[in-house]
Simulated scan of single mutants.
Amino acid sequence: MTVTSTGKRKTAKARATVEEGEGTLRINSRPLHVQQKAIKERVKEPLIIAGEEIYGDLNIQVTSEGGGIQGQAEAIRMAIARGLVEYTDSDDLERDFRDYDRNMMVEDPRRTETRKPSQSSKGARHKQQKSYR
């Protein structure tokens, strides 16, 4: 059985495929131990919560794109957690993920505010500086 799940954080997107195998985890076709430290730490969280007995015999392939390193790490973490829950069909596992961090199962709706017209390009609410003297 193969399960595909997605995760999003800001502009980063991740897609995870969970299937039976020998217990490998690959992110963008590279094993976990080759990834940056920020990604490693965040991605291990759902695996630690799930436990070796659940993910030990599963192959997890993740592709991520967009956003920055931290946003991609969060998106990957969400995709893996959702994939494990869907693969095992376990309410207890989903409850454990939600208790640890709700953002493992639920997307964060916050997005960048759009820039307003007739203002500088520094941000959504940045105004031109003016002198009163």
Rank of each mutant, 00 (worst) to 15 (best):
T2Q: 15
V3P: 12
S5M: 06
S5I: 06
T6H: 13
K8V: 08
K8W: 01
R9W: 01
A12P: 00
A14E: 02
A14P: 05
A14F: 00
A16P: 11
T17F: 04
V18T: 13
E19I: 09
E19P: 09
E20F: 05
E20N: 13
E22F: 06
E22V: 13
T24V: 10
L25D: 05
R26A: 03
R26S: 09
I27F: 04
N28C: 09
S29Q: 12
S29N: 14
V34K: 14
Q35N: 12
Q35V: 07
K37F: 15
K37H: 13
A38W: 02
I39M: 11
E41K: 15
R42S: 14
R42M: 13
R42Q: 09
R42N: 08
K44I: 02
K44V: 12
E45K: 10
P46G: 08
I49K: 01
I49F: 05
A50I: 01
I54K: 06
I54P: 04
G56S: 04
G56N: 10
G56I: 11
D57I: 03
L58R: 09
N59E: 10
N59Q: 05
N59A: 07
I60P: 10
V62F: 03
S64Y: 00
E65Q: 13
E65C: 06
G66M: 02
G67K: 07
G68E: 03
I69G: 08
I69H: 08
I69R: 12
I69T: 15
Q70M: 12
Q72H: 02
A73N: 05
E74I: 01
A75P: 03
A75T: 05
A75I: 02
A75H: 00
R77M: 14
M78S: 13
A79F: 04
R82H: 00
G83M: 07
V85E: 03
E86A: 15
E86P: 09
E86N: 14
Y87Q: 06
D89F: 02
D89L: 04
S90P: 04
S90Q: 01
D91F: 03
D92G: 05
L93H: 05
L93F: 03
D96Q: 13
D96I: 00
D96R: 15
D99E: 14
D99Q: 11
D99K: 13
Y100H: 14
D101W: 05
D101Y: 10
R102V: 10
T112H: 02
T114G: 09
T114M: 04
T114H: 08
K116P: 03
P117Q: 10
P117W: 12
P117H: 11
S118W: 11
S118C: 12
Q119C: 05
Q119K: 15
Q119P: 02
S120M: 07
S121V: 05
S121M: 01
K122W: 11
K122P: 02
A124L: 04
R125P: 01
Q129K: 15
K130N: 06
S131R: 15
S131E: 11
S131K: 11
Y132Q: 14
R133M: 03
R133C: 02
